[in-house]
Simulated scan of single mutants.
Amino acid sequence: MRVAIVTGASSGIGQSAAIQIAKRGVGVILTYGRNRAGALDTVADIEKEGGAAVALPLDVGRSETFPAFRDAVVAALRDTWQRDTFDILVNNAGFGQMAMFEDTTEELFDRFMRVLLKGPYFLTQTLLPLLADGGAVVNVTSNSALFSGLEAGYSAYGSMKGGLTVLTRYMAKEFSPRGIRVNSIAPGSTRTRIADDAFARFPEVVPALAAQTALGRIGEPDDIGLVIAALASEEGRWITAQNIEVSGGYHL
């Protein structure tokens, strides 16, 4: 059985990606930060459909913990799937916060960098020896790094996501001798718990975002999770080094 690692899968896009990947007959190791209950919900949903999943804690902003996480992955692979490698890595975990350029503190900038760029860089580096030849990596960026999603207040967030988009191309270049494909996806406004559950706290912003979206609504987690699952599967076997916007035509 193929196995995937999906970071930040206790809710939202990561949770959807984990479930959609599992529906394709793939085992899933999913990670969570503070929301252990959400991660266990994801595991339960996967098991209910006959799949296998393991939830592990991970703070992608603390790269010093990555070797211990790799050891936990090795144990989970061995105990649950009798394997010493895995096939798919989805770098999804992150956080979002609006801050105008003049209000962005060095502390916030550094946190964005640790979680959104340094984290995926060194987590992938740490796990790369365990990633099987012919595998796939999907990095979750944001259309805030593209002209279509350019909005005031996301200079630091968008810059790190843009860095992840460039990193994706370099990963694709350097991993290609092993047949490992690397792509990124750039979601638009999606109903997740990002920015402390902002969509639930400020529902009035939804109609305005929907009005700016060609397909007439904001995204749902499964709109993104399905694309991640497809890119990581056989359907995506001839796609690498691409960044795909998944936004329903935001600002089209």
Rank of each mutant, 00 (worst) to 15 (best):
V166P: 00
R111T: 12
E174L: 07
F95R: 08
A156V: 08
A172D: 02
T141A: 14
L117H: 10
F147V: 11
G96N: 14
F122S: 01
G162R: 12
R169F: 00
G134N: 01
F175M: 09
V115I: 15
L108F: 09
G119D: 06
L167Y: 05
L164E: 11
L131P: 00
L150G: 11
S184E: 09
F109L: 13
L146Q: 05
S159V: 12
T190N: 13
T126D: 10
R111G: 00
S159G: 15
R191T: 06
M160G: 03
K173P: 00
A99E: 15
M98W: 06
I185A: 07
G179R: 01
S189R: 10
G94Q: 05
D103S: 13
S184A: 15
V140P: 01
T105C: 12
S148C: 06
L108W: 09
Y157S: 08
R111D: 07
T192Y: 12
P187F: 00
I180Q: 08
F122C: 00
E102L: 09
S144E: 13
R169W: 02
D110R: 15
R169Q: 15
L117N: 11
N139W: 08
T104D: 07
P187D: 03
G94T: 15
V137R: 02
A152D: 14
T105D: 12
K161L: 10
Y154C: 02
A145F: 07
T168C: 02
S155A: 15
T105Q: 11
G94K: 09
A156Y: 09
M100T: 13
D103I: 00
Q97E: 14
G134K: 03
G119A: 07
N139K: 02
R169I: 04
E174F: 06
T124N: 01
